[in-house]
C-alpha cells in the first residue's frame, strides 16, 4: 500500500514538473505575448494540480490536506482572473497579436514561396 502511494505520488509530482517545464519552455519559444499567456496558463493549471495531488497522497487525511486543497483552489480561482486582466490590459494598450493561418493553408503558401527562388 505504502509502495503504491509512493509510486503514484512520484508519477504525479514528476508529471507536474514536466508540464511546468513545458509551460516555461513555451514562454521562451512562442512568438508573441498572447501565445505566451497560453503557455503560462499550462503551468498554472495542470502543473499545480498534479504537484499538489502528489503532495496530498503523501500527506494522508490530515489538516495539511485541507490546506493543500485550499492552495489549489486559490490558484485555480485567481489564475484565470490574473491572465484575463493581463490580456485585457495588453489588448487595451494595443499590443499587436501575431496571427497565423491554419497549418494546412500555411504549408501551401510555404511551398509557393520556396518554389520562387
Amino acid at each position: 500500500m505504502e509502495l503504491i502511494l509512493d509510486v503514484l505520488s512520484w508519477i504525479l509530482l514528476m508529471g507536474g514538473a514536466f508540464f511546468g517545464i513545458t509551460g516555461a519552455i513555451g514562454t521562451l519559444r512562442f512568438p508573441d505575448f498572447y501565445s505566451r499567456v497560453h503557455a503560462g496558463s499550462v503551468t498554472d493549471t495542470l502543473c499545480a494540480l498534479m504537484i499538489i495531488g502528489g503532495l496530498i497522497l503523501q500527506a494522508g487525511f490530515t489538516l495539511v490536506t485541507v490546506k493543500l486543497i485550499m492552495v489549489l483552489a486559490f490558484l485555480w480561482y485567481t489564475s484565470p482572473a490574473a491572465s484575463h486582466a493581463l490580456v485585457r490590459a495588453a489588448h487595451h494598450m494595443g499590443v499587436p497579436p501575431v496571427l497565423l493561418p491554419k497549418p494546412d493553408a500555411r504549408s501551401k503558401t510555404r511551398e509557393g514561396s520556396s518554389s520562387k527562388p
Binding site: H38, S41, V42, P80, A81, H84
Partner: peptide
C-alpha cells in the same frame, strides 16, 4: 473564466 482557465484559449 472557464475559457481562460483551459490552456489554449484566453477571453480578451
Amino acid at each position: 473564466n472557464s475559457i481562460t482557465l483551459t490552456p489554449g484559449t484566453v477571453s480578451v
